[in-house]
């Protein structure tokens, strides 16, 4: 940390040897930094700036005009946008804790010394995260088919009545949450497992000597140390949920009755299907703002305890 000492005497420092080479950027610097800078400017800075500008414009009959904040104001009265935010909130509150909890349990199990074929198990749980989206979508469509789908066949065999998974607004949400959890729980479990493995055996032993049972060891010793890793998982999952597009696009297209519509899917529809690019850009920037605020709060909420 650079601590300022304003009263420091003005001792003339001996000129460092390097001072002969002035620190002005030279051609060589730019040659090295050039490709990255150009790529950043073209694919990051320009689109960001242009979409920000675009969010204050509206294009009618081929003419683009400056409309100030009115695209942002539209969102307040747009039932579809509000629905998409409610859906995202619901997924955040239900799916993220469910998935992180499940990932923790999996990670702890995978970390047990008595477990055999540990590498295989780890791979099995990680596989869904690297499965191509199309395969994933097809498999879930087949599993969740109303008649003949494996899920409903099992339910019928157990004497339950079959469920119209993807065609009923409520069940479609359940299906979406379930399939997201399937896809990402293992991924988070592997990250948490890495965290668990960085906690040495001696901590388990010390806790045991102090008389702590397994449960106490985990809740009082291990989990508190895992906090930064959990925080990482929670934040990336939150961001992922706020940017949710592929899962619901492939499974339900946001329907039925907007029950699985998310802001990013909605902005795709608004931009590319309804050709309302200004409004789509405004939605994108609201999503960015929401992600920034929520991530900041999570850092404050979780992060502060770490320093104590």
């Amino acid at each position: 940390m650079a601590v300022q000492t304003p009263a420091a005497p003005p001792v003339p420092l001996p000129a460092p040897a390097r001072a002969r080479h002035p620190r002005r950027p030279r051609l060589t610097h730019w040659i090295f930094a050039g490709p990255a800078t150009v790529l950043f400017a073209v694919f990051f800075a320009y689109p960001l700036g242009a979409s920000f500008y675009q969010s204050f414009t509206s294009t009618e009959n081929g003419r683009t005009t400056w409309v100030g904040l009115s695209q942002y104001a539209r969102m307040l009265h747009d039932p579809s946008f509000l629905d998409s935010m409610v859906n995202t909130g619901l997924i955040l509150v239900v799916q993220v804790p469910l998935m992180i909890g499940l990932a923790l349990v999996l990670a702890v199990l995978l970390n047990q010394s008595w477990l055999r074929f540990r590498g295989t198990w780890r791979a099995v749980y990680f596989l869904p995260a690297v499965t191509t989206l199309v395969a994933y979508a097809v498999v879930f469509q087949v599993l969740l088919k109303t008649d003949g789908g494996l899920v409903n066949q099992t339910a019928t065999a157990l004497g339950l009545s079959p469920i119209d998974w993807l065609n009923d607004p409520t069940w479609a949400r359940v299906a979406l949450i379930g399939s997201m959890t399937w896809r990402w729980a293992g991924y988070n479990a592997v990250i948490l497992l890495a965290g668990l493995q960085s906690i040495g055996r001696e901590q388990h032993e010390a806790a045991a000597i102090d008389g702590a049972g397994t449960l106490t060891t985990y809740t009082k010793v291990i989990l508190p140390q895992l906090r930064p890793v959990v925080l990482f998982c929670v934040i990336t999952s939150t961001i992922g949920t706020l940017q949710l597009f592929d899962e619901n696009y492939t499974l339900t297209k946001g329907g039925p009755d907007d029950a699985t519509l998310t802001p990013v899917l909605y902005l795709y529809k608004v931009g590319f299907q309804q050709m309302d690019f200004g409004y789509a850009a405004a939605i994108a920037w609201v999503v960015v703002a929401v992600i920034a605020v929520i991530s900041f709060l999570q850092f404050r909420f979780f992060g502060r305890e770490r320093k104590r």
């Binding site: 990051f44 242009a50 675009q54 414009t57 990013v264 931009g271 690019f277 850009a281 994108a284």
Partner: peptide, 14 residues
Amino acid sequence: LAAGGAAALTGVAG
């Protein structure tokens, strides 16, 4: 992806 999407949205606008 997000950057790509934004690029698509805006490259087009420019």
